[in-house]
Amino acid sequence: SPISQSQFIPLGEILCLAISAMNSARKPVTQEALMEHLTTCFPGVPTPSQEILRHTLNTLVRERKIYPTPDGYFIVTP
């Protein structure tokens, strides 16, 4: 029987999409709110552990794709 394939999207890209959507909705993007958003909006995607989430967010900050503030994470705009 054929095996169904799913699209692979890197966690960093999913986080950027989620942060962008939450920023547009003016929702604060904390790590907890981000986990909740991922569970709700990406039900088929396994939720990352806190450690993996933190590591991926730090990587995105180093890559200058997002930036942290006391009010949460935001997408870097050119």
Rank of each mutant, 00 (worst) to 15 (best):
Q7S: 14
S24V: 12
F74W: 12
Y67P: 01
K65V: 12
L53Q: 01
P43A: 05
N58V: 12
P43M: 03
T30C: 11
M35I: 14
V61C: 14
I14C: 06
C41W: 07
S49D: 04
C16R: 08
D71P: 03
I3H: 11
V61F: 04
L60Y: 01
F8I: 11
S1R: 02
I75E: 13
Q50K: 11
L15F: 06
P68W: 09
I9G: 13
N23E: 06
D71R: 07
T56N: 05
T40W: 03
S24R: 11
H37G: 03
S20K: 13
H55L: 07
S49N: 04
P2E: 04
R62V: 14
L53M: 13
T69S: 13
I14W: 06
R26V: 07
V76S: 15
P43E: 12
P48C: 07
P46K: 03
P70K: 14
R62L: 10
E51Y: 04
F74V: 12
Y73G: 06
S20A: 06
C41L: 06
R62D: 09
I3R: 11
T30R: 07
E32V: 08
S49G: 08
I3Q: 06
P43C: 05
S6V: 04
Q5S: 12
E32F: 04
Q7T: 11
E13H: 08
S6C: 02
S4W: 04
P70L: 08
V45E: 05
P68S: 15
S4G: 04
L15P: 00
T40Q: 13
S6E: 09
R54K: 11
E32I: 08
F42C: 15
E51H: 14
F42W: 07
I52D: 09
L60T: 00
R54F: 07
A33W: 02
Y67M: 15
V76F: 11
H37F: 02
G44E: 13
V45W: 14
T56V: 10
A21W: 03
S24G: 12
T30Y: 05
P28F: 04
F8S: 13
V76R: 10
V61R: 10
Q50T: 07
C41G: 13
P2L: 14
T47P: 04
L15G: 00
L38I: 07
E13K: 10
T59A: 13
M22H: 03
V29S: 08
L11R: 01
Q31N: 12
T30Q: 13
F74K: 13
I19W: 00
V61G: 03
R26L: 08
Q31R: 08
S1H: 06
V45N: 03
A25H: 12
F8C: 06
N58P: 01
T59Q: 10
S24E: 13
P48K: 01
Y73I: 03
F74G: 14
S4F: 05
Q5K: 13
Q31W: 06
R54G: 15
P70G: 11
Q5G: 06
A21I: 03
T47F: 02
D71C: 05
L15C: 14
L60G: 01
A25T: 04
S49P: 03
Y73C: 14
M22R: 04
N23W: 02
I14F: 03
I9T: 13
T40H: 03
L60I: 02
Q31Y: 09
V45R: 08
P68I: 09
L60M: 05
I19G: 00
P78V: 04
P28D: 15
M22C: 06
Q50L: 12
Q50C: 08
T69Q: 10
S6L: 05
G72C: 02
H37P: 00
P68T: 14
L34K: 00
P43T: 10
A33Y: 04
